[in-house]
Nucleic acid binder design. Structure first.
Lengths: 213, 213
DNA sequence: TGATTAAATTAGGAGTCCTATATATATTTA
DNA sequence: TAAATATATATAGGACTCCTAATTTAATCA
C-alpha cells in the first residue's frame, strides 16, 4: 500500500529508474558505435559474438537481442556487408546459418574501450553499493533466464566451473574451476567468454549455495 | 585488480547487467506499445508528457529521450498524426513549440497497466534488496542529472517538497510537503507528477541530508 | 540595425523493426 | 517411404527511428 501520491508499486518505480539509465546507455552506445561506422544494434551483435568460436545462429542472435528473426537477418546482413561477420551454413543442419565474428569485427571490439557516462555513473556509488547492485542484477537476470524470458547468459551462476561460497575468506568466497582461483562477489561475471553452461540440476544446486552465502 | 579472467571492472559488469535488463524492457515496451498501434519511442514520449499541463518543447523531449532534435520532431509528428498530442507555439517565444498530450493520449496511458517481465523480475528480489536497488538507482540518476548528462528528473531528491530523514520512525523517515505525509525509502519517486524542481542549493542540502540517513 | 544565437523543420539516407509470406530442409507420421 | 508438419532463414512491404547537414524563423546582443 502506497502512503503518498499515486505512483504505483516499488517494482514500477524501479522499472522507471532502470529505464532512465537505459536511455543514457543507449545514447552512449550510439556514440561508441558511431566511431566505427556502426549503430548500437550492430555493435551489440558483435559483442554477443565475441569469443564464441562456433558462432551463433540467426535465431539465437534474435533471441539474445530480443528482436524478431527477420530483424536479426537485417542487421546481420548489414554487418556482413561491412565484412565484420561471416555466415556459414551448418553441415549438420543445412537450414541453419552460423554467424561468426570476423577478424575485422574483433579488431573493432578491441579498439573500443571508452567508458561512457553510464559506466562512470556507477562510480558514484560506494564499493558496497556497487556490489549490492551487481548481485541484484545477477539475481534478476538469473530469474529471467530460468523463466525462459531470455536465453541463458554467460554468467558465473549458470556456469559449470562456478563453486559459490567455498572459501572462508569473506572477500573471496567463490571459486572458479576454470582458472582455479578464488574470487569475490564483485568479480561475478555477467558475460564471461569462458562460460560453459551447467545442466539445470547443477544450476539449481549452485544457486542455492550461492544464495546462502 | 581483477583476480580471475579478463572481464574488466565492476562498473563494466554492472553495465553489462543493466544492458540485459534493458533488452527485456525494450521488448516489453514493444508489446505494450503495439497494443495501441504505437512503438516504444512514441509511448515513452506520451509517458514523458503525462501530467505536464504546459507540455514540453521539442528540444526538451529530445533531451529526455536522448535523441537528436530532428528525431524528436519525427516522432512527435507521428504522434500528432495519430492525434495523441497537440502542438501549439509558445506566445512568449514564438520559435518554440509546446507539445501537450491530448485526451486520446491520456486514455492510452490509463488503459496501459500490464506489468511485464522486467517488472515481475524485480519481484524475484527480497524487499530489502528492492529497496537497495531503488536507492542505488536514485543515486545514479541523481549523479547523471547533476552532471548534466540527463535533464532533471521528477524525483523526490530534486523536489522542493521533499524533506529527507526528518522522522524518527525508521520505516518512514522522509516527508513530502506536497501531500504532507511521511514515507519510506521504498516510496522514493523516480517520476512524480507533482514534482517541482528545487534550486541547486536546496537540492545540494537535501542530498546531504538524504545520504546521512 | 546587423550579426549572432537559438528552436524547429526539412531533406536525404541508412537501417531498425514489425508482420506476413516464401523457400528450403528436417522430422514425424500414416 | 511419401505426405504432412515443423523449423530455420530469407524476402517483401511498410512505418518509423535516427542520424547529419542545411533551412527557416525568431530572439538577443552589440
Amino acid at each position: 500500500m502506497e502512503t503518498t501520491r499515486n505512483a504505483g508499486s516499488v517494482n514500477h518505480r524501479i522499472r522507471e529508474g532502470l529505464s532512465r539509465i537505459a536511455t543514457v546507455m543507449r545514447n552512449e552506445d550510439w556514440n561508441r558505435a558511431k566511431a566505427f561506422g556502426l549503430n548500437p544494434t550492430q555493435l551489440s551483435i558483435l559483442e554477443l559474438l565475441q569469443g564464441r568460436q562456433d558462432g551463433l545462429t540467426v535465431k539465437e542472435i534474435a533471441a539474445n537481442l530480443g528482436v524478431s528473426q527477420p530483424t536479426a537477418t537485417d542487421s546481420i546482413a548489414a554487418l556482413e556487408r561491412k565484412e565484420l561477420v561471416t555466415k556459414t551454413s551448418d553441415a549438420a543442419d543445412r537450414r541453419t546459418v552460423k554467424v561468426v565474428i570476423a577478424q575485422k569485427g574483433v579488431a573493432i571490439l578491441e579498439e573500443d574501450s571508452t567508458p561512457g557516462a553510464a559506466q562512470n555513473t556507477v562510480g558514484a556509488l560506494a564499493d558496497q553499493e556497487q556490489e549490492e547492485l551487481l548481485v541484484n542484477l545477477v539475481k534478476m537476470i538469473r530469474h529471467l533466464q530460468e523463466n525462459d524470458a531470455i536465453p541463458i547468459q554467460r554468467m558465473c551462476v549458470s556456469c559449470r566451473y562456478f563453486a559459490p561460497n567455498v572459501h572462508s575468506d569473506a572477500a573471496t568466497p567463490h571459486h572458479c574451476h576454470f582458472v582455479d582461483a578464488a574470487f569475490g562477489q564483485r568479480e561475478l561475471r555477467i558475460d564471461c567468454r569462458e562460460h560453459e553452461i551447467a545442466d539445470p540440476a547443477f544450476r539449481a544446486a549452485t544457486w542455492t549455495a550461492f544464495e546462502k552465502g
